[in-house]
């Protein structure tokens, strides 16, 4: 697995943030923000919104740093989850804010390419690559569309032209197989 920084460094940095050390947050920003903007942009599809997501996320990382404990997983996973959640929330909000057609148009363009590009770039030596690769194409695609592009069950069903109920149960089974494979 390629990591931007040793998890221990980020754990230390979060502890320093909790004590009010701004240079520690700056350290996290310097190491991770470039990638985090890309991750947010894969979901919200606009650079300015992606930066807004990352901006709000860093303020949250700062205010919640004292809550981070190793039982919440790696520090890096915790930080990335904050950004993904912010991006997903913004997407859900903007669906209320714009008409459905607007959002569809915006997201249709090259989004599916992004999802498949991420799959092709995934570290081939990783366990995740092996286990995702063992799934059948539709299940793999559904899981990737959700994680990378922030697609909902309904959107995945639409894109893959399969009924909603089937989509849900396929993804559920895919995730279950993935957990088993990676256990």
């Amino acid at each position: 697995m390629v990591t931007g920084a040793a998890p221990d460094d980020l754990t230390t940095a979060l502890a320093a943030c909790a004590k009010g050390d701004r240079t520690a947050l700056r350290g996290i920003f310097d190491r991770e923000a470039g990638r985090l903007v890309t991750i947010a942009e894969r979901i919200v599809r606009r650079r300015d919104l992606a930066e807004e997501v990352v901006q709000e996320s860093f303020i949250r990382i700062w205010t919640q740093a004292h809550q981070y404990q190793p039982d919440r997983g790696s520090a890096r996973g915790w930080i990335y989850a904050i950004v993904r959640n912010r991006a997903l929330n913004l997407l859900r909000d903007s669906k209320r804010e714009y008409t459905v057609e607007d959002v569809e148009l915006l997201r249709e363009r090259d989004q599916v390419d992004h999802v498949m590009a991420a799959w092709h770039r995934l570290d081939r030596t990783s366990r995740l690559h092996d286990c995702l690769g063992a799934l059948d194409d539709t299940k793999r695609r559904g899981i990737l569309m959700a994680y990378i592009g922030g697609y909902s069950h309904g959107e995945i069903a639409g894109r893959l032209s399969i009924p909603l109920g089937t989509t849900k149960s396929w993804i559920r089974r895919g995730l279950s197989a993935l957990r088993e494979c990676m256990a």
Partner: peptide
């Protein structure tokens, strides 16, 4: 799932 974020 974190390795998928490293593809960015």
């Amino acid at each position: 799932f974190l390795p998928l974020d490293d593809t960015a």
